[in-house]
Structures are given as structure tokens and as C-alpha cells.
Write a protein that binds this DNA or RNA. Structure first.
Lengths: 177, 177
DNA sequence: TATTGTTATACTCTATAACTATA
DNA sequence: TATAGTTATAGAGTATAACAATA
């Protein structure tokens, strides 16, 4: 009994991508929340503020899609950022439904300081890599994330229908639970 | 008015590591939850099952620390995994306080199928990278995450005390909120 | 006294739906 | 009819504390 089936090798465990990403993101978040504690919603508020200040003032819906935040949550976030004089809602003359969010003067100053802090944090999160590998990882993460963001979640759902317990073996128990 | 201060360049926004990690992890999680829906706690249960099957049966506390899950939550997770005949709690003869968690025969079979599914998912999550960059990213993520995991959170808290709004400028408003 | 695991509680975050206004 | 934004509600997930057993 107890067929340990060791042919899986070390393909799981530490080398699991989901685990690695979760650990890195968790550490990033811990440090960011500590450093950005006096921003209205911590690192969340920082992400919104940063996204607001790149290029053409985005709409709330565009912010929500880019930052993976629900539109209803985005309302509260911008409410508090606006109350803190960091961003400003402006009506769009072309479409009176939308509100374009742009940073205030004070918001840009705060963002500059926050960017510097976050830069240090990111170096420490990737402290296990030497500088070359760190820069490469940073760039690769951005590239992969941008590609993921551009492909909508429903692009290729075919591979997701396979069930773990209902594979080629065909278990008679139905579900595992 | 509206001093856009464009000298920040594109150092934020898309190239933000926290954003990149969040996007990638979110996509990994979406696919994993869909593919592992019939495991007791989805991708969470998969992580526990995978960690259980590597080497020496870990204690619940060790699992909780490695997977960044609270000990109280780990109790429920293992409860359900054990009810599904995927893992088994065994008393440790050396220390009767601890419970060592090891996979069952059925658990190893389910894990093998889950590993294959997760492997495909991870390739798709990193679809924006060519195969070489993908393998390198995968390895670098594991290395950085392991390094992060080994350094406890309280190792170097000095850099976290700096406040964003209380920097060199010294604002008279106190806090931004 | 410190630690493992369990249980109960409270809190935060997120998702969902209903509503208004514009297109 | 469809979309942007707001508001209110319910649910899942998470953290916290108290407890029993053991070291």
C-alpha cells in the first residue's frame, strides 16, 4: 500500500507559480500598507492615484477595469481620495455620464513621494534576486501582466472545464467532497 | 494651473510591480478556481494538498506559515480535506500536541491530475512571455518567493516607518485624510 | 510559561443587485 | 436598450481572542 508515486518530482511545492506570486504579492502588500498608511486606502489608494496620473485622465470604469476593482468600490475610493485633495472628478464634455479622474497638485506631490517609497519596497521584495535578474523579473512581470490584461478572461475558457476528480480515471464517487 | 509635472516618466502605472503581481495572481486564481472547483476549498485546498505531499508530513502550523494562512483557517481546511479522503491527520509520537498531515492514496491521485491542470494554467498566465522568458520568470519567482519566505517580516522594519505625506516637505495639514 | 490545535466571534473586503442619469 | 456612476445589502474571507492539551 501507500504508493507514493514519486514520479511527480519537484514540479509542485516551492516552484508553484501561484504560491510564488502569492508570497511576493503578500510581502509587497505588507510593506506597502505600512509605508502608505496615511493615504486614504493605503496601497489601493496609491494604485488609483498612480493610474490617475498617467496620460489622459481615465474614467472611473477604466480605472476599475485596469486595477481589478469593482466599480462600486471605486466610487468609495475616489470619494475619499477626492476628500483628501489628491484627485478630482471632472465631467466629460463629450459624454455627461462619465467622470474623468485627474490628480490635484497636492496629489502629484504625494504620488512622487509614494513612488520613491514603493521603489525601495520593490527592491526589497525582490531581494532574493541579483540586480540583473531583478530588473529582468520586473520587466517580465510587467509584460506578462499587460498581456494578461489585454486578453479578456473569456477569451479561451475551454481549458477550464476539465474537472480534477472527473479525469480519465472516472471515479464512481461523483465529487470528492 | 494644472502643472502636469511630466518628469516622472513611466516609472509607475504598468511597470508597477505590485500591480503586475496582482494582475498575474488574479488571473492564476481565476483559472485555478475554475479548474479546481471540485476540490474542497478550490485552489486553497490544492495548495494545502500539494504542500502536504512534499517530503516529511508537515504540521498544521508549518502548513499555515508556508501558505500564509491563519492557523484557525487551516483547521477548517484540513477538516474538509480529511472528510474528502484527500489528507489524513496523524499524531506525532515525538510531540503529542502536533498533528502531521499526510496525503491519502486518493489524495495523491487527485493531486497528480490537479498538478497537470495547474501546469497548463501557469503556461497560459505567462502567455505574454516566450518560452525561455517564461521558464526564467517561473524560476525567478520561486527563488524570490523562497527568499522572502525565509526572511521573517520583522527582519528589517526600519524602512517602513517613513510616511508619505510627512516627507521632506512637511505638510501643515497633518494627515491627508 | 510557551506552543499546538480547536472553537467562537467580529471585522473587512468583495460581489451582487437595484437605482438614476445619460447615451 | 445599453452604459457610467451611485447606493444598499448579503456573502465570503480574514483576523482576533479565548480555550484545552501538551511541552
Amino acid at each position: 500500500m501507500t504508493p507514493t508515486t514519486p514520479e511527480r518530482g519537484e514540479a509542485t511545492g516551492d516552484s508553484n507559480l501561484g504560491w510564488s506570486l502569492a508570497v511576493l504579492l503578500r510581502r509587497w502588500h505588507e510593506h506597502a500598507e505600512a509605508a502608505l498608511a496615511d493615504l486614504p486606502h493605503g496601497s489601493r489608494g496609491y494604485h488609483v492615484l498612480a493610474a490617475t496620473s498617467r496620460g489622459d485622465a481615465p474614467t472611473q470604469a477604466a480605472l476599475a477595469e485596469r486595477l481589478l476593482i469593482d466599480r462600486s468600490v471605486m466610487t468609495y475610493l475616489i470619494d475619499d481620495l477626492e476628500a483628501a485633495d489628491l484627485v478630482q472628478r471632472r465631467p466629460d464634455p463629450a459624454d455627461r455620464r462619465v467622470r474623468r479622474v485627474c490628480p490635484t497638485e497636492h496629489g502629484l506631490e504625494v504620488l512622487a513621494r509614494a513612488d520613491a517609497l514603493v521603489g525601495h519596497i520593490e527592491e526589497r521584495v525582490l531581494g532574493g534576486l541579483d540586480p540583473d535578474a531583478r530588473a529582468l523579473f520586473h520587466a517580465s512581470a510587467a509584460r506578462a501582466a499587460t498581456a494578461v490584461q489585454e486578453s479578456s478572461p473569456g477569451t479561451d475558457p475551454c481549458a477550464a472545464v476539465v474537472q480534477v476528480t472527473g479525469g480519465a480515471a472516472g471515479n464512481a464517487q461523483g465529487t470528492v467532497g
